[in-house]
Simulated assay, not measured.
Amino acid sequence: MKDQKPWVKPALELGPVMLFFLVFVLKRGETVSLWGQEYGGFILATLVFIPALALATLIQWRLSGRLAPMQIATLVLVVVFGGLSVWLNDPRFFKMKPTMIYLLFAGLLGFSLIARKNWLQAVLSEALPMNADGWRKLTLRMTILFLALAMANELVWRTMSESTWVYFKTFGLPLVLFAFLIANAGLFKAHALPQGDGEGKG
């Protein structure tokens, strides 16, 4: 596996989202005729986003040799819900996609707590070495976070304008996740493993 430049991973992760946002902003309020069907800017942006995300995911896999379960689940749900939106010319399915993703993640993390399995640790331990107690606390907090994000997404897309949802999805959700990481800096420090230690037991 070749060493990746530090900008490659963020570019592949953010590129499809920013492409969706750009197409939506440029075509907002317009209609485009494709295959004998009239599509609005939102559906057109969705149509561009699906292959862009698939391509970015493929490139990440070719560069790293592996994909995180979260990446695979996200791609599958984007293809399913985004495809339904394009096929039925109905943006509601794509707007529901984040809700499904967050509920899926919350369910998996919640089950890992009940089953006493450190699934989050298994995925992120190399990047964030902590002891088992730290991983249990972080898993609980992330379960609550994903449930809150699912509810927030439902509230925004059902009660606010399409443009508001796009801005919320493109900028609001990443900012919430960033704020969550900053807010948990104390937990990361308190439960960090001493340098040279392996993964925490648990």
Rank of each mutant, 00 (worst) to 15 (best):
L109Q: 07
L109P: 01
L109G: 00
G110T: 06
G110Q: 04
G110V: 02
F111K: 11
F111T: 10
S112E: 05
L113E: 11
I114Q: 02
I114D: 00
A115Y: 06
A115Q: 11
A115H: 07
A115F: 02
R116I: 01
K117I: 10
K117E: 13
K117M: 10
N118S: 15
N118Y: 03
W119V: 13
Q121W: 01
V123N: 11
L124I: 10
S125M: 01
E126F: 03
E126P: 02
E126A: 11
P129A: 02
P129W: 00
M130N: 01
N131G: 09
N131W: 05
A132I: 08
D133G: 11
D133V: 12
D133Q: 15
D133W: 01
K137S: 12
K137D: 13
K137P: 00
L138R: 04
T139F: 07
R141I: 02
M142H: 10
M142Y: 11
T143N: 03
T143A: 07
F146C: 12
F146S: 06
A148T: 10
L149M: 10
A150E: 02
A150K: 06
A150T: 05
A150W: 01
M151S: 13
M151W: 13
E154W: 10
L155P: 08
V156S: 03
W157L: 03
R158Y: 11
T159H: 14
E162W: 04
S163C: 00
S163T: 15
W165N: 09
V166A: 07
K169V: 07
K169L: 09
K169Q: 14
T170E: 06
F171P: 06
G172R: 07
G172N: 04
L173G: 00
L173N: 08
P174L: 05
P174M: 05
P174A: 04
L175V: 13
V176P: 04
V176A: 13
F178H: 10
F178Y: 14
A179G: 11
F180A: 06
F180Y: 09
L181A: 14
L181N: 13
L181Q: 13
A183Y: 09
G186K: 09
L187Y: 05
L187H: 01
F188Y: 12
F188R: 08
K189S: 12
A190P: 03
